[in-house]
């Protein structure tokens, strides 16, 4: 079937089977391999994308569900907003990236969190990211990163360089 949606700010028309998983559509056909898959069952959060600004698991979504929606992947994070998103650089600065396989999903879940709570407490950040598993970092530096990005987003902290 033909599906119309907005991908990373650009209107797209895609011809595909309606039961194609969104993660496969994005990775295999649209070349957006920043969307990771690590469980295929909605357990780990690595495949997180933003659908109309909400964090969603692309391994549990079918292509037909994208009709009329606005989809943002990690590749489109900066492009989607008016300004550069402070999250990726904050992750780097605080040392929140190790192997990096969970990072795109983690960043997008953090973006969704900051949209609904611009000044979250550390506890709220932990809650907001609790659906995204990371096996490398122990999470602490990820929490630091989201705190820093939140402060930058509010203008409380200077941006790097």
């Amino acid at each position: 079937m033909r599906i119309n949606f907005v991908l990373n700010g650009e209107p797209r028309r895609v011809e595909c089977d309606p039961d194609r998983r969104v993660v496969d559509l994005l990775r295999e056909e649209l070349g957006l391999t920043g969307v990771k898959e690590a469980c295929g069952a909605g357990e780990c959060g690595a495949c997180t994308v933003l659908v109309d600004g909400q964090a969603r698991l692309s391994c549990l979504m079918l292509a037909a569900q994208l009709e009329g929606r606005e989809l943002t992947t990690i590749e489109g994070l900066a492009a989607a907003g008016q300004t550069l998103d402070p999250l990726p650089a904050s992750f780097v600065e605080t040392g929140a990236v190790q192997c990096g396989f969970c990072t795109p999903g983690m960043v997008l879940s953090a973006r969704a969190l900051l949209e609904r709570a611009p000044a979250p407490s550390r506890r709220e950040i932990r809650q907001g990211l609790s659906g995204n598993l990371c096996r490398c970092t122990g999470y602490q530096k990820i929490i630091d990163a989201v705190e820093l990005a939140a402060a930058r987003g509010r203008g409380d902290e200077p941006w790097p360089r």
Partner: peptide, 8 residues
């Protein structure tokens, strides 16, 4: 790390 955080 930045490449990873940007999905690249």
């Amino acid at each position: 790390d930045l490449a990873k955080a940007r999905g690249l």
